[in-house]
Design a binder for these strands. Sequence first.
DNA 1: CGACACATGTAACACGTTACATGATTTG
DNA 2: CAAATCATGTAACGTGTTACATGTGTCG
Lengths: 193, 193
Amino acid sequence: MSVKQALLALLEQGPMYGYQLRSEFEQRTGGTWPLNVGQVYTTLARLERDGLVAGTGADDDGHLVYRLTDTGRGEVAAWFTTPVARTQPPRDELAIKLALAVTVPGVDVGRVIQQQRSATMTALQDYTRLKRGEGGNERADLAWGLVLESLVFAAEAEIRWLDHCESRLRRAAREEQARPATATAPTGQEAGR
Amino acid sequence: MSVKQALLALLEQGPMYGYQLRSEFEQRTGGTWPLNVGQVYTTLARLERDGLVAGTGADDDGHLVYRLTDTGRGEVAAWFTTPVARTQPPRDELAIKLALAVTVPGVDVGRVIQQQRSATMTALQDYTRLKRGEGGNERADLAWGLVLESLVFAAEAEIRWLDHCESRLRRAAREEQARPATATAPTGQEAGR
DNA sequence: CGACACATGTAACACGTTACATGATTTG
DNA sequence: CAAATCATGTAACGTGTTACATGTGTCG
């Protein structure tokens, strides 16, 4: 969904051709979300079909340039003024994994958490190393800097959440041990319903 | 991608039929990520094709029950022991939006940030209200509690990031004003390359 | 010349969403 | 009985990924 919008937004800056759109996108996001060129072309085709962009033949260098239509310009404006919907957030694989790990028998939740934690920590270090390398050229790419920081914030939140899960599980285990005859069936499978 | 894994993980708990898989999933995630029943059936078909699950005729109640194969059980184990890859995180629509907002001319970035911020705050309040209502039945659904908290942590991180963006943009604007002849072309379109 | 980046596509496939069709069972 | 829920599917479409085909231009 967001590729469509991204291409439209980039075209707001001026007419561009497919390959150029990809590099502009990747420059601004620092290659965080690599964008397949093929998808750019197919997406452009769909956008043209839907009347949001229009191909304007070839330019002086022989590039097949696209420009925004008025409808397309409207779409861009709408995208920027509407906050992203949190009513149906994209599925969070980690959250799903942990939610299932605590319910499925025989899964060592602690291990799952620890492994994820260390993986995320590594990623976090990579991010900060990247940020160092980026220093100097001030507004060189503000956009890429912001993206990078969003990754950092997300990773930090993930770690905090993992720690929180760990302590909450420890607490649950303690209470479990105190009076074992509450909810979980201590004897085998409970699955057949 | 995560639906496949989720179904497999649920089947680790014991054989189940399609409709049941959906409700089990939605119970554990509190309906955060609604799962279309149709998708359950098509996914099950693919999983069977790939030899990860096996349909075992109808059970006593006439339900078409599926069970994990050994390969499937291996997949589940692998999923739980491998941390989620941060090398290619899913595209973050908000980050993309802001990254483009700061580069595309004529977009009021401040407004974009403020609107998103208030939307996220509202979501955050909804979450905490939900958490209140959930109180009491202790381990009633631990999984759903954890999912809810992951949403909270993510939303909080988002707000922090938005605030961070705001201040960073203000700083950039100040420096811009101090010596306006640096990078941005003050005269019209710079797009045509 | 050979390797590599630029540039434009197409085909096949996986995944996801929405909507529709169909029938059994439950419940007010 | 009517409506809702349970239960199993199918079809159409949008989106995303991977891989391939093809040709031009540039640079060591």
